[in-house]
């Protein structure tokens, strides 16, 4: 295997397994920051400023990664509990809720699940979960990680906003040794 392929595999694993696990770990602790080193890679997760008075930037910095902040966008969904509309941000609660198993809406529109997808379905990272209809144009809803579909957060045909949780997935395996 070439070095480039190895890097890509590591990045995929960091994004789909280590980061969700780290988020969960951080949420369940009183820590302000968590850092993991592995095979020359470093992933650091920091709580948003609101909960610890640190720098305003929150998110994940994966040194050497081409996608520096996969969780920064997750952080942006803080305070969402499924409904479109107002939010109240609570740093701790937000992170706890984002257990890494959420699939979110890529656009504003009406959600339709993919045929054959339902609670209990086994899905892999990259699988099509459904689509959001934006003025007649389909925007694919793709699973960001593999596992078992635990719940659909919205009904078929329901209106969703950008970033709204659509489905909850139990990851197939968590990295236990972080």
């Amino acid at each position: 295997m070439s070095g480039e392929n190895a890097d890509r595999d590591t990045i995929t694993r960091l994004a789909s397994e280590v980061v969700p696990a780290l988020i969960e770990r951080l949420a369940g602790s009183e820590l302000g920051e968590l850092e993991v080193r592995e095979q020359g890679w470093r992933v650091r997760l920091r709580r948003p400023a609101a909960s610890d008075g640190e720098a305003p930037q929150s998110g994940v910095a994966a040194t050497g990664s081409k996608k520096p902040a996969p969780a920064a966008s997750l952080g942006g969904h803080s305070g969402h509990s499924g409904q479109a509309g107002h939010s109240s941000t609570d740093g701790h609660g937000a992170w706890r809720e984002l257990d890494g198993g959420l699939i979110t809406s890529p656009a504003v529109g009406y959600f339709a699940p993919h045929g054959g997808i339902g609670v209990g379905s086994a899905i892999s990272s990259g699988d099509l979960v459904g689509h959001v209809d934006v003025l007649g144009v389909r925007h694919e809803v793709v699973a960001q990680l593999g596992g078992t579909l635990e719940a659909l957060e919205v009904e078929p045909g329901e209106a969703v906003e950008y970033g709204q949780p659509i489905a909850r997935v139990t990851p197939e395996r968590l990295v236990a040794d972080v």
Partner: peptide, 12 residues
């Protein structure tokens, strides 16, 4: 967003 009757997130 806080004062609106409704608010909707449209994108990043």
């Amino acid at each position: 967003v806080q004062l609106a009757d409704e608010a909707i997130c449209i994108g990043p």
